[in-house]
Design a protein around this nucleic acid. Sequence first.
DNA 1: GCCGTGACTCGAA
DNA 2: TTTCGAGCCACGG
Length: 108
Amino acid sequence: MKEPSFFDRVYDVAKLIPYGKVTSYGAIAKAIGAAKSARMVGYAMNNAGNIEDVPAHRVLNRNGVLTGKHHFNGTNLMQQLLEEEGHIIIDNQVQNFSDVFWDPMKEI
DNA sequence: GCCGTGACTCGAA
DNA sequence: TTTCGAGCCACGG
């Protein structure tokens, strides 16, 4: 039995994101012990589109901007999903971001 | 087996 | 204040 892969750890943390909350790639990266590998988190999220348990739409960059919305089915799906959870998106950016931000480090 | 790319982040000028 | 450069690791060609 080996340790979970980098991607697997990212998915594991992403699955822990509660409804109505969002987090950042860097926060997840840091939670899995790879704060400097935030890019890999985003890369992993690309594959996460194949996994329903991974709410990639709740993962934004540290500015709360929907950097990866283009990777979703269409264009405004990611924004729409977030709005469905009660978030407000303006100019591809989540308003009140600090208030809805969820720190995975608190769960890990 | 090497090179380029990418849903990021931080520090410095 | 904004902009630029460097670091990081994994995957595809």
